[in-house]
Write a protein that binds this DNA or RNA. Structure first.
Lengths: 344, 344
DNA sequence: CACGTATTGTGAAACGTTTCATTTTGCGAT
DNA sequence: ATCGCAAAATGAAACGTTTCACAATACGTG
């Protein structure tokens, strides 16, 4: 298993170690003639740089890590694609870690990422207990940017979408459609985005003097959780049952949609649904979903750019908190019910 | 930026370099007393292993890479989740790379992965031009397992699903439903899975003496591509227009569904659709999609297990080619058209 | 109490790069 | 030819680990 290193290349090309390194890292400083000779040797030997050695000596890595809540949620894959674009354009590499909404796995990933001395970290943290941990990374010289999550922290950037506003848009729309009994479906509430969306919706109801926002908590933000929540809702007596659901994200909404239909309720006739994220599948659902759109790829791209900027020049970098605006997209799942007054 | 290394830990704990290393790697060989002392020093100094140095010296990495065709395709995210599970269980880490069906990006990822000297590589390659490249990785001691792709290669494992059979199942079903003009929608055909599915379908038609399978090629396997294909199909004269589509995957099928509806055709009344993969969203579509199901997570998990087995004991490892069976799931998108004979 | 053995601890060498202070080479001007 | 200078090439040191041959210590036995 003779690893062919820079040394053998040097010998074969009849030059010194340093020259080979120069060909690799500062081609201008070496005569075209020798350069060619070295490249030929590299080719013939099938030499491949050893990134660990390179990184060890150079002290800086070219890879950026992103830790997301759920890789199988299209929202995050779009964010990842945006980040990927920015990172690769800068000649780096993005590695994707999935915390799966599990704090233990999140911590494990942070450990690994720290051991790898990555260039920087993009993360959508789970709870609030990450502060000291991320703080430590920053102290260590690893810039951190919060993704899809606002932050008052003065020593890190964040890129987010105004979730409270998103919640308001959703609730506002449902109120205008005449709904009185509205439920928020989602969880866990320890995820800030979930809590914010709920708060935004609750605020609107309060302003309108409507009944309080019901909360149907779920354990996670998946279609399965949405389906389970819908079952519980179907089981409620009709008089108390909400006439509209505002779901914490589209996966939950899609699951709820299935659950309601399975339980014999019609959407939007009996129960209207508003989702969140406006993933591609929202418009392709059995009943196309009204949803709150977020600029997914832009979110990822912006976060990555901020991160790279900080990594390139930590000294001069000023932390920023970018907040995008969400946008309501109305579709059939909240179409006005014909022949049935909800406002009564 | 004083990197606290093993050296400082040793000094603080009043032991030698080697002892600290032993505490980290072979805790049994060190007295509980000194071990505690070292751990305390580690804690106090906030020491974090430098993975590059570790890897450089040890020669072997703990990370496994997976290169997929499209991270935003739920099929692959499920495969990734399966692989992740197996890798993490073995104490490793999985890094996810997205080739985006782009050969250049695939090559870039292979380069990086090779430079990183990863423990092993899981890959769903794009075309056929990867042979020598992967061969080289294997020669270098990096085991490679092909995912979702069969292989006759004797020196690498592969885990796949019988795509020809999948194509047969789809076509068989459509033929039984009475369809005569059937089109295959998907591409590029350089992706083996796509070609295999088409071939399976074509074989069935041939056996039944039916008209040839029409091919509507797409540039990629996305909803956008499916929508475009559907537009082309809508534009065909009704007499020549296929009465059923077999789409290379569910994303294309979902896009086609949208495109057909937008073009004024009803599904399944005017045109039936069969998708492939049976991703979660297939059953939640406007018209729930008949699809060919693949064991997605199992695929990923099995591939990772095979890889780890090989990495752990290259010498004794015997290469295997695991092939799973796909399964047809019938839903509304191919429901028998009422009051209209397709067999005329 | 001496001896042999098992258990702990030690520290130098090696992993494959990059960096940088030096030396060597090439070349135009005198 | 000779000198001077810029350009090119050199090679030793350093990055932070792990490994391994060896030394030191502890322990049970005759």
């Amino acid at each position: 298993m003779a690893e062919t290193g820079i040394k053998e290349v040097a010998r074969r090309a009849g030059v010194s170690l340093g020259t080979v390194s120069n060909v690799l890292n500062r081609p201008q400083t070496v005569t075209p003639q020798t350069r060619k000779r070295v490249l030929k040797a590299i080719e013939e030997l099938g030499y491949v740089r050893n990134d660990s050695a390179r990184h060890l000596r150079a002290g800086r890595s070219r890879t950026v890590a992103i830790v997301v809540l759920d890789v199988s949620n299209p929202f995050f894959t779009d964010v990842v694609r945006g980040a990927e674009e920015a990172v690769e354009q800068a000649g780096g590499m993005l590695i994707v870690c999935n915390s799966g909404e599990d704090a233990t796995r999140e911590r494990r990933h942070l450990d690994t990422v720290e051991e790898q001395r990555v260039r920087g970290l993009l993360i959508t943290p789970i709870g609030e207990g990450h502060h000291k941990r991320l703080e430590r990374l920053v102290k260590r010289g690893i810039p951190v940017v919060l993704v899809d999550r606002g932050s008052g922290e003065p020593n890190q950037c964040s890129v987010s979408v105004d979730d409270v506003l998103g919640g308001r848009l959703a609730a506002q729309h449902l109120v205008e459609r005449g709904h009185r009994r509205i439920a928020f479906v989602g969880g866990p509430l320890s995820i800030r985005q979930v809590a914010d969306r709920r708060d935004g919706a609750a605020a609107v109801l309060a302003e309108h003097g409507r009944a309080e926002l019901q909360i149907v908590q779920t354990r996670s933000l998946t279609t399965v959780a949405g389906r389970e929540a819908a079952e519980a809702i179907c089981a409620m007596p009709a008089a108390r049952r909400p006439t509209a659901l505002f779901c914490a994200n589209d996966l939950v909404a899609l699951g709820a949609l299935q659950g309601l239909v399975a339980g014999g309720l019609r959407v939007p006739h009996d129960v209207a649904i508003v989702g969140y994220d406006d993933i591609d599948f929202a418009s392709a659902a059995t009943v196309p979903l009204t949803s709150v759109r977020q600029p997914r790829e832009l979110l990822g791209r912006t976060a990555a750019q901020l991160l790279l900027e900080e990594a390139d020049d930590t000294a001069r970098h000023g932390h920023r908190h970018v907040v995008f605006q969400p946008q309501l997209v109305v579709r059939q799942s909240t179409a006005a019910a014909r022949g049935k007054s909800l406002t009564r």
